Amino acid sequence: MKKVLSSILVLSIIAIFVSGCTSSKDASNTGDKKGKYNVITTTTMLSDMTKSIGGDFVEVKGLMGPGVDPHLYKASAGDVSLMQKADMVVYNGLHLEGKMGEVFEQLDGGGKLIVSVANGIKEEKLLNSQDASISHDPHIWFDVNIWKDASIELAKGLKKLDKEHEKEYDENLKNYLVELDELDAYIKERTLELPKENRVLITAHDAFNYFGRAYGYDVRGLQGISTASEAGTSDVRELANFIVERKIKAVFIESSVPKKNIEALQEAVKAKGFDVKIGGELYSDSIGDKGSKAETYIGTFKSNIDTIVDALK
């Protein structure tokens, strides 16, 4: 592990040195022949946000595709090269991309414009983490109002990168915030279809705590905040007891987490004489596939709330 990380860091430093004398807006450097700024993002949620706010002035390349788990993602030598050649790099922060932290530090130290959207969120809005390895829960996109703050932080980065089009970025941001307000209203409206006692969300890992706080759900995850943690026998047993006691109708698998743990939980509940169904698949650390109704952040969140409410009604 240490050898791999060291190799990546060495590649970072070499790339910084080699490209240090070139202009970041030079199309031959960015690989963009359209004269757009080349922006690299980590997660699919950030790729979608950057496309929405950056509009016609940026070319967005995401390192992670749909279904990829950012907690476990490791930057390859190719990823480091892409980030160094980019005009701006956007990442979530709060240790979501836990295995890429030192790479970001190296790039930042080399003068690259690096934007962590979590820097735009006041600490009192963040949830503390029960995982000793990190201070705060990084799944900030599951509270739409917090994601609005993240969007504003991203727009600041774009305007720093491209002062010529500040007005256009502000207009795109304004439109995006309106869409997020509409999404927030939709989630609340659908939630009202559920009696309060039915608003219990059980998933593979603790990705939905911001969602629970914002929209009034009791959220339980089989694994911890990071998928790097493992669910033990006692975790399965305790959650199975909770499901039987509360007569929970459904539990949910996640698009970026193997479903075997939830299936084991379902079997443990069955062994106690109660049947709980798998209510469907939720998008947790990634948006949906291209061409699906969930290929955007907004579409993903709508898909999630529809799946949750329809299964728990």
Rank of each mutant, 00 (worst) to 15 (best):
D137Y: 07
D181Y: 12
A155Q: 13
K148A: 10
E164A: 13
S151Y: 02
I187V: 15
I187N: 12
K160E: 00
E168H: 02
S129Q: 04
K196N: 15
E153A: 09
I134N: 01
N172R: 09
Y210A: 00
S129H: 02
N145V: 01
V200P: 07
Y169D: 05
T191F: 14
D184V: 12
A132N: 11
I225P: 00
D181S: 12
Y186S: 05
E166Q: 15
S133Y: 05
K196Y: 04
I134A: 00
Y169S: 03
S135C: 00
E164N: 09
A185Q: 10
H205E: 14
K148E: 02
Y217C: 04
K156G: 10
L183N: 07
Y210C: 03
I152M: 04
W141Y: 07
Y186T: 00
E164S: 12
R220T: 05
G212N: 02
R213T: 02
V219M: 00
Y215E: 14
L192D: 10
S151C: 13
Q223D: 10
D149F: 14
D162C: 02
D218L: 02
D143K: 07
E179P: 12
Q130V: 05
S133F: 03
Y186R: 07
G212L: 11
D149T: 13
R199H: 04
H205L: 04
W141F: 09
D184P: 01
A185K: 15
K163S: 03
Q130K: 07
D206I: 07
E168A: 14
I187L: 15
L158H: 15
L222T: 10
Q130S: 06
E182R: 10
L173E: 07
S151G: 15
E168G: 08
A204G: 13
A204N: 13
A150N: 07
E166K: 13
K174R: 14
T191H: 13
D181I: 13
D162N: 11
L201T: 09
S135F: 07
T203S: 14
K148Y: 04
G212Q: 06
F208T: 04
D206H: 04
K167W: 08
L177N: 07
E197R: 06
D218F: 08
N145I: 03
N145A: 05
Y176N: 07
K174V: 00
E168T: 15
G224T: 06
D137K: 04
P195C: 03
I187K: 14
K160F: 01
N145K: 11
D137G: 01
K167H: 11
Y217M: 08
L192W: 03
E179W: 12
K174G: 01
L194I: 09
V178M: 06
A155S: 09
W147Q: 08
E179V: 06
Y186C: 06
D181W: 08
N172E: 03
D206M: 03
L173D: 00
I140V: 14
I146V: 09
E189W: 06
D181A: 15
D137W: 05
L183D: 05
H139G: 00
D170G: 03
L158C: 10
N175T: 13
D206W: 00
R199W: 10
F211C: 09
F211R: 00
L154I: 10
V200C: 08
Y169H: 06
D206S: 10
I187C: 13
N145M: 08
V200W: 09
A150V: 05
D143G: 10
Y186V: 01
